[in-house]
């Protein structure tokens, strides 16, 4: 049976982890490769790097991080942040990423999703959707890290992305991101039911029950979280044991 995935996400800026795990025995807590190794050992199902490097000059640093991680961690790795061109995608895949997530560019340049999925295969193209609730049962797409409204209906957008060849949707609720109040379950459920590609729920996890709800109520295939794992509050095993106790199929 296919298992639900638990995916820790690391924010990386200029090659350094922004909010890292606070483990005492960590040699360099800011080194994304060290952090990735810990998640690998804990049995994370995938890893996600979000590159939040602002300046263009430093954008190639992420390639080095990906390269070093792929040499040490024999597990699936998704990399996103600032992906704009086919060349960006190719470089990340060659560095060792298995999947690349496209956010702003999926909105501004619809050909990118189509062309990249044709060229590299749908299996490695993830569309990262940042959605905000605008009224009851209506969500809109935001870009540029959630700062810019687009007026695009989120549900129509994910359907469009699927038809263009996206292999997976990484769905973040901008209302919940950073709140620790749990995923936007209505949104997650609607998107999961609408598309036939896997959906990763993201944004708002504050405890393990939130992961459970994302899968059970939100019908997500995978759950992504950052801070609950980084600060050592819970390990990946804690999360898996909890989900297992609730009857959710996970890899233990």
């Amino acid at each position: 049976m296919l298992k639900n995935r638990i995916i820790p996400c690391l924010d990386v800026k200029n090659g350094r982890v922004v909010k890292g795990i606070n483990f005492v025995d960590l040699i360099d807590a800011g080194d994304p490769v060290e952090q990735a190794k810990i998640y690998d050992e804990q049995g994370a199902d995938e890893l996600c790097f979000l590159d939040i490097t602002a300046s263009n000059e430093n954008r190639n640093i992420i390639l080095d991080t990906v390269k070093k991680t792929a040499e040490k961690c024999f597990m699936p790795l998704t990399v996103g942040g600032g992906v704009r061109t086919l060349e960006d995608i190719r470089n990340l895949l060659l560095a060792g990423a298995d999947k690349v997530s496209i956010n702003t560019a999926a909105v501004s340049n619809k050909n990118l999703v189509k062309e990249s999925s044709e060229k590299f295969g749908s299996q490695c193209i993830v569309v990262a959707v940042d959605a905000k609730k605008v009224k009851e049962n209506k969500w809109e797409i935001f870009t540029h890290g959630g700062r810019k409204s687009t007026g695009i209906d989120a549900l129509k957008f994910v359907e469009k992305m699927e038809s263009l060849g996206a292999g997976e949707i990484l769905l973040t609720s901008m209302d919940r991101d950073g709140t620790k109040k749990g995923y936007d379950l209505d949104l997650t459920k609607k998107v999961s039911k609408l598309v036939n590609i896997p959906v990763i729920a993201s944004g708002g996890v504050g405890n393990l029950e939130h992961l459970h709800q994302g899968i059970k109520i939100g019908k997500a295939n995978a759950v992504l979280a950052a801070s609950i794992f980084h600060f050592g509050e819970f390990s990946i095993q804690d999360a898996k044991k909890y989900l297992d106790s609730k009857g959710i199929p996970v890899r233990i």
Partner: peptide, 16 residues
């Protein structure tokens, strides 16, 4: 065969 769209494709993740 995704059995009348009840299964997600790609088959993505960990299976036994």
């Amino acid at each position: 065969n995704n059995i009348n769209k009840t299964l997600k494709l790609p088959h993505m993740g960990w299976n036994q």
